[in-house]
Structure formats: C-alpha cells, structure tokens
Design a binder for these strands. Structure first.
Lengths: 251, 251
DNA sequence: GAGTGGTCTAGACCACGTG
DNA sequence: ACGTGGTCTAGACCACTCG
C-alpha cells in the first residue's frame, strides 16, 4: 500500500525529542508534503491510522491536523477524510496603515491641516456612497497630513451621516477622521484600490509638488455591519511615499 | 471581586445551545472584550477558574483560549496568566498576484514577449542582489506581459545564478519566470515596495504609453531559505492596472 | 453499518514565573 | 510552594458520508 510506506517514512520523520508531540507530528506531515510524498488532493492517513502508526493519542493527532488545516496545509471533511490542500504558492500582501500611526512609528511628527469640513448632497456621481440615495446629505472633509512639516497625504473623505452624525463637530487637529470613525462605527470590512495618477492643480498646490510628479492614489471604502461608513481618496506624492510589504510562502 | 461579576456575566453570555462548547466559550469571551468589561492588558480568569465557573472541562477551556490567542484576542504567559491583547484595529492588506494567473482569472489571454535574456555582472549599484558580490555573474531578463494583446506589465528581473543555474535555458513563451523560479527555488520570504513613477523613453515605447502617463512600480525581492533568488521591477501603466484589496476588522 | 472527523471529559505530569 | 499555562492520554459520544 502507498499509505503504508508513506506512514513508515512519517514515523522516521518524527525524530527529534525536545519538541512537543503535536508539533513533531505537524512537522512530519509537512515534511511528507514538501518532499512530494503526499501530493495535493491526495488523502492522508485517518486519525485512527495515525494513532496506531505513531503511537500517539487521538487528541494529539487531532490537534496537529486541526492546526495544519487552519494553516492551509490540509483540508478535512467529516465522514470523508483528510486531504493535502492545493499548493497555495504564496500570497504577497501589502499592508495599508493609518497615516498618523505610520508617521508616529517612524518617530516623526504628524500634523494636519483641515481644508474643508462641510455637508453636501450626494450627486450620484463622484459624490456618492453605497446606500445613500442621490440628493441625500453627505459629510465631506479634506485634510492634509504632514510628516515633520512636509505634506505626505491629501485625504478627501465622504462620510455617511447616518453612521457618524457628529462627524462635523469633531476637532480634527486632535483626532484623525480615521480614528474618530473607528470609534463610532467599528470597521467590519473594507475594500481599496491603489493606482498611479497625476495630480491636478489643486492637489499640486496642497501637496507642494510640481505638475510632473506622479502620485499614489488609494481609494478606500469601509463598512460597519451592512452600512457604508466612509469612502476616502488618499493621495500620496510618489517621491515621498511608498507602500511596503513582506510576505512568506506557505508550503 | 471584579472577576466574580465578570465571570457571572460570562456564564450568561454563553446562552445558545446548538454550537460546540469551545465555540460558545470563545464567543462569550469575545463578548466581554467587545463590551469593554475586559479591557486590553487586563488579566482574565485562569483556566481552572473558568473550569469551575462554566462547568466545562479544562481541555475545552484550553482550546478556546488557545484559538483566541492565535486569533490575536488574547496573550498568554506560562506561569503568569491570560490577558486581553491590545486592540489591533485592523490591518488592511493588498494582495499582489502573479500576473499570468491574474489575467487568466479575469478570463483574458496572457501572452508575453522576451526582450532580454542574458548574463551580466553585478555592479554593486542597480545591478545587484543581496549575497552576490560585485563582479559576480547575474542573470537578467526583460519581458513584456500582454493582456489580450495590450501591454500591462514590463518585468525587469535579476536572478541569482547559484539558485537557478538553468534560468537562461528556459523558454519563457511557455513558462513565466515567476513559475519557473517557484519550481526550482520555492519561495520562503519576500519583500516589496509599491510606488508611483514616470516611465522613461524605453518603458514608454514597450508599454505603448505616452510620456505623461504615471506608472505603478512594484519592486520585489524574494528569498528561498537564506539565499536571495531574484529581484524584480514590475512596471504597470497607471491607466490599465490597479491593485485591489479587501480587508476585515478583527475586534 | 463502518469509517471518518468533531467534540468533550477527567485526570495527569510538566515547565515556568512569582513570592 | 503555589498557581499558571502547556501538553498528553484513554475513552467516550456524536454527526456525517458512503457503499
């Protein structure tokens, strides 16, 4: 049987003593997968088989398999069996942080200047938000964020008045819109899009850049429960701001 | 005692029957945290206290606490106790995919054109890679990727010959450098930077864009084990390509 | 009905941090 | 010495899938 030889390799792959058993089981299974002895979609031995082959209690085997499942190595189906997951390769991720936090983390000073804070009407085009009908009120703010006095972000934001009725009454020298909105309407989900654009005349002036400097534009829409809370257009000068990310492989 | 009242609230928060016990325990604890009854850095009842208060076996309590820890809600210290983690807010992530896969997922046709495939010498400046000394050989490739015949990415790549000695012998009409490199040197870690730049004359010509169109530049460095494998500069026309991402809150 | 994973228990031993 | 979390076991019952 293929599973017989595979399991005997499994047992030998569990050599080292100092680690907890469930971890050695996990490592042994990962070894089989990495070595190609167990292929994606292939069924691996059942819990009770592993109990017999490895001489370990079922709860311990179960923990190892459960953790490997949540880590994406395995797929389990009750009544059917445990299978090697499709190789995910890797997922390269970029984190997009709150600007004030990010500047603080770099040990720099964050300041901001409020350009606009007003109530407007949704026009169904650029000034709109999911769930807010045309002609309904919206809040609008424009803020420039500075890092050690240098402008690094122009934040243009629309807010759903139903979700944050006191948005216009806040002092945005003290609290950032992001922080305030997170308090009154905790984020449940969001989407964003990153693109490269050229700044218009107003943007050039506020960010103190010239007409030839490309910018990163992050458009972000966030939700609390089933309600759209806010949509933001965050514009960064290309020469002063970059998005960083690290990633790791899975298999 | 504060923990006494907190625990009695805990027990009442565990109402519903149909869910497994460890899940109800998890939900009850999350409820306490969200409601603010248990604050960040505050110690929560010990496993044995929870066993007594909730009338559940310790293994079940342990599983609930262990999972909440791996999900970022709690921090545990052996010999000390279990504490509510600092609120993470959320982490907004952008996924950066393999271009060929991404185009295929959209149901479009991916083609590519090889511009350059050569051996060069590391010069310690732009042509360099961690772990490869100046004057050592490097492989260099330039490929344009097309989506339904329209150029969407210019891939400029340096490869460590030690990690992929046969890189120059591959047919990049058949396999993408990304896919080939993942096969011979499975990725273990990577970093990337996204910025907005203006294209130079060569880039304008190959991507068929005009001089005023800003581009997204993704610079990516990947490692396999402790060895740098490849560094890539991926240039996307700003009008034809955007990075998308979704995110969800944690707490 | 036989085999699978999903869960739960009671009790045990250990390593660790604190007083 | 004590309480904490970390782990492990043997055995149990259940829900599910499949032939």
């Amino acid at each position: 049987m293929t599973s017989q030889s595979a399991v005997s390799q499994l047992a030998s792959a569990m050599g080292q003593q100092p680690a907890p058993i469930y971890l050695r089981v996990k490592q042994a299974i990962i070894t089989q997968i990495r070595a190609g002895h167990w292929q994606p979609h292939q069924r691996i031995p059942s819990e009770s088989e592993l109990v017999n082959e490895l001489g370990v209690s079922r709860m311990t085997i179960n923990r190892a398999l459960r953790e490997l499942t949540s880590e994406g190595y395995l797929v389990r189906m009750q009544g059917v069996g445990t299978f090697v997951a499709e190789s995910k390769g890797y997922t390269a991720m970029l984190e997009v942080h709150n600007i004030a936090e990010e500047i603080a983390l770099r040990g720099h000073e964050h300041t901001s200047r409020l350009l606009t804070l007003e109530e407007i009407q949704a026009d169904g085009e650029r000034l709109t938000m999911p769930g807010v009908a045309q002609g309904q009120p919206l809040f609008h703010s424009q803020i420039v964020h500075y890092e050690d006095g240098i402008p690094v972000q122009l934040e243009d934001r629309l807010v759903n008045p139903i979700m944050a009725p006191d948005y216009l009454k806040q002092d945005y020298q003290v609290i950032t819109p992001y922080t305030y909105l997170m308090q009154v309407a905790p984020l449940s989900a969001g989407e964003h899009v990153v693109e490269a654009v050229m700044p218009d005349a107003f943007q050039q002036k506020t960010l103190m850049i010239d007409a030839r400097e490309p910018c990163l534009l992050v458009r972000r829409q966030t939700w609390s429960g089933n309600h759209a809370v806010t949509g933001a257009r965050l514009l960064y000068p290309g020469t002063r701001y970059k998005l960083l990310g690290k990633f790791r492989g899975h298999n």
